[in-house]
């Protein structure tokens, strides 16, 4: 599955447009990680637990996006956009959407 955030895929021709597909997830880290992140906030620096949380969430959302596109019979997703928001304290919410297409 080709995934790009451009309109076209260089070197390929889009033959069919199948519509908008999306993948979303909400994930949280266990309470111990939240406490450690709170402590790390005092000195600053990278919050490894949360970096991990967000990349895990993106991977999961990406898998779901691909699963949706596969159901439509697509072999590529173009114009992919990420959006993040906070629905609950300590939880990250990731939403990925794009246009499912068939390329040659």
């Amino acid at each position: 599955m080709i995934i790009t955030n451009t309109e076209e895929i260089p070197g390929k021709t889009i033959t069919t447009c199948l519509g908008v597909v999306s993948g979303s997830t909400v994930r949280a880290k266990h309470a111990g990680r939240d406490i450690m992140a709170g402590l790390k906030n005092i000195v600053g620096g990278e919050l490894k637990g949360y970096t991990e949380l967000l990349s895990e969430a993106r991977d999961q959302a990406m898998d779901r996006l691909q699963a949706q596109a596969q159901q439509l019979g697509a072999n590529a997703i173009v114009n992919v956009r990420f959006s993040t928001s906070s629905v609950a304290a300590g939880a990250s919410e990731i939403y990925i959407y794009g246009t499912a297409v068939i390329v040659e």
Binding site: L18, G19, G23, S24, T25, R64, A67, Q68, Q71, L72
Partner: peptide, 11 residues
């Protein structure tokens, strides 16, 4: 354009 909807909700 080929209109289509996924059968199953993966989200």
């Amino acid at each position: 354009y080929r209109p289509s909807l996924p059968e199953q909700n993966d989200n």
